[in-house]
Every structure is written in structure tokens, then in C-alpha cells.
Design a protein around this nucleic acid. Sequence first.
DNA 1: TCCTAAATGGCACTCAGTGCCAATTCGCGG
DNA 2: CCGCGAATTGGCACTGAGTGCCATTTAGGA
Lengths: 197, 197
Amino acid sequence: MQSSSAGSSRSLKEIKADAVAASIAESALALFDKKGFDSVTVDEIASASGISRRSFFRYFGTKEDVVVSGHAAFGEMIIEMVKGRPQEEDVWVSLRRGYDVLVDNVDRDPEGAARTMRVINSTASLRAHTLEKHGAWAVGLAPEIARRLGDLDARRLEADALVHASFACLDVALAHFARNPKARLHELLDAAFKALR
Amino acid sequence: MQSSSAGSSRSLKEIKADAVAASIAESALALFDKKGFDSVTVDEIASASGISRRSFFRYFGTKEDVVVSGHAAFGEMIIEMVKGRPQEEDVWVSLRRGYDVLVDNVDRDPEGAARTMRVINSTASLRAHTLEKHGAWAVGLAPEIARRLGDLDARRLEADALVHASFACLDVALAHFARNPKARLHELLDAAFKALR
DNA sequence: TCCTAAATGGCACTCAGTGCCAATTCGCGG
DNA sequence: CCGCGAATTGGCACTGAGTGCCATTTAGGA
């Protein structure tokens, strides 16, 4: 999927490599969705993608990465979005706005997003991995929130609680969305955020 | 560790098995704390415990279970505690009181709890596993909270958000406790809960 | 003491993940 | 169009977690 950070020159090699990775991910996701993540072996994915097992692990460090690595860039994007919000804005609102980058992405391809969520939510290790990734994003986000709260050490815990709770809202909203893809994610998120205020 | 559910007769066998498991866990935790979870093999744990590799997997289904399975019972205990709170009590307060069973357990052996938290917090897969377990507990807890909120379907998301956010507070408080074991966990938890109200 | 059932250990297997090296492919200058 | 060098790929062998199967040992009760 997309992963541009320096928006200028992508060598032909990189473009091709990304295309191959996307193609592998597509085959793999389809298999996962049909048979379940755990009962698909890397060998299966490799032969379904027309590559060797060894090459699979060059494109994706782990089997889980096929499902998860596409979202890696969102952490930074959410943090940047929150940093760009007005300083005097209520931090809870700023956090909510940060997740708009995710909402927009889901809205761009609801069926694909729903399939990915289906795979993640039906596999304990993937749920765990996703939660832990959100925790890592939260660590990156907390200093910004702490700064707005006054940056006293006493506010550190408060900032952590707010940030992690906001990710809890995101996870809840995404879980509801996965069970009912015709719901609008942004409305679910708004409702979850409202519940804590 | 303790795992009594039917509070009556524990056969001698079971008592002995629990003791063996506790002894294995002690050796393993010491190794994990010294060398890091990932660089300790099951073979090492087995020989350090004077058992075979195969027997290790009879006591613990996975290497992670050595660290994590001791807390399995707390999920049910937290749910029972919350169910036992007065019906008219504010749900946020009821949730906070539920975690007292964890706080009490930590207070009973602060050094041991800190060591376990150290091991968990320094290993991504264990952090992930713990988060996912809390998520599973949240699923068990949500119906009770939804019931108190009026049980309308519209309240389902709200209940989920509250429950998951309360676990986020718990995780934040535990993380702070792991970094600073001289802090009082119940105060950290109170502060985290207060931050969301 | 003996007999049975559970606990244990050993072995071989699957699968994820990794290091190493040989073969292949591909871009590029001549 | 040819060939050179670098990057990509694939094969192979290895480690480590986890599991099924079976033989052996242990331990408890008649």
C-alpha cells in the first residue's frame, strides 16, 4: 500500500517492489479471510504469490506483517495531525481529530478495510499485535498532550490516561465497524469519545 | 499460583502440580528478568527446573503462559467485583472498584509484581498478550455495564468505550508502577480514572 | 505387594523465522 | 547488442516454539 514519506522520487525498483508487496498482501489477505490466519502457512502464501518462501520474508518480516505493516505509517500521521491542531483546543477534541486520518482511509476503501478488520478481529495474535502497536503510537502521542496540559510531571499520568483512553475509543469503534460495516466509522468514533466526557 | 474456583477439595495431585508449576514459573521469571524473555529458551527453563522440555509444555501451554497465566483468574474476579457493586453506583466508580482485586494482589507482593511487570513491559509480545487479555476481560465486563446504562442497543458502544477506557487506565497505572515501584498503585489508578472525568 | 492410571520423557514432526551462499535477473555503460 | 556489476531471488540448513505419539516411570490404592 502507500508508504510515501519523501514525496518526490521513487526509483523504479521501489515502485516495483511496492507493487509486488501489494500483490503478495492481496493474495495473503484473501487466503486469511477464507481459511483463517492461523491455518494459512507462509508456503501457501508464497506459492499463491508465485514467489519463494524465502522471498516472502524479504517483503514481510513476519506473517503478521502482511496484515499489519500497511498501517505502520498511520502512527506518525496521527501524531502530526494532533500536533497541527490549535494549541488552545481541548485535548480530547484534538485527539478525536487525529483519528480522522484513519477514518478517511477507511472511507476510501470500506470493503478492503472491513476485510482486514475481519481478519484481525478473528485472530488473537493479530488483535494483540494491533493493540500493542496502538500502545506504541500512544507513547509517541503522550508528550504532545502532556505539553498542552502544562508539562508538569504530575500531568504525565493524566496525559497517558487520556491518550490511551482515546485509543481505546478507536479500538472500540473499529470493532463495532468490523461487525457492522454499514455503520459510519466517524459516527461510532464520535459516540465513543462522547461516552468518556 | 492460586486458581481455586470450586473452593472445596484440592486433591493432593493438584496441590503438587500447582507447586511444581509455581517452581517452574519462579525459575523462568528469574531467567527472563536477567536475560530477557526472548533470549531464554524453553530448554533452558526446563533444565533449570529439572524437568524435560516436553513436561514444561504440560504445565504451560506456551512460553508466554509462564508469565501470563497466573493472572488468568483476575478477569473473572474483576467482573464479579463489579457485579457486586451497588446498582445505582456510578459505573465509572464501579469499574474503579473492580480493579481493587488487582491492586490488593500487587500490594501483597510488590517486588514480585514489579518483576513480572518489568518482564512484560520489556517484551513486545508479552505487552501485546496482556493487552489482548484485558480486551477479553473487557468483553466479559461490558454486558454488565451496558445493563446498568439501560441496555438499549445504542448504549452498547458507550458501555464498550467506558470499559475499554477503564482498562486503558489500568494499563497506564501499571506501566507507571513498573517504572516506579515505590509509587502506590491505587493512587496511580485513582489519578488515571480522575483524568477521564 | 501388585496393579492400574497418571505423570514423565524421548522422539519425530510442523511451522515461523534467519543466515549463508549460489544462481538469476536487471540496469547500464560501452 | 554485449557484457559487467549490483541487487534480487531461491535453495538449504539451522534454531526455536509447539504438538502428537508412544514407551517408561512413578505413585497411589486394593
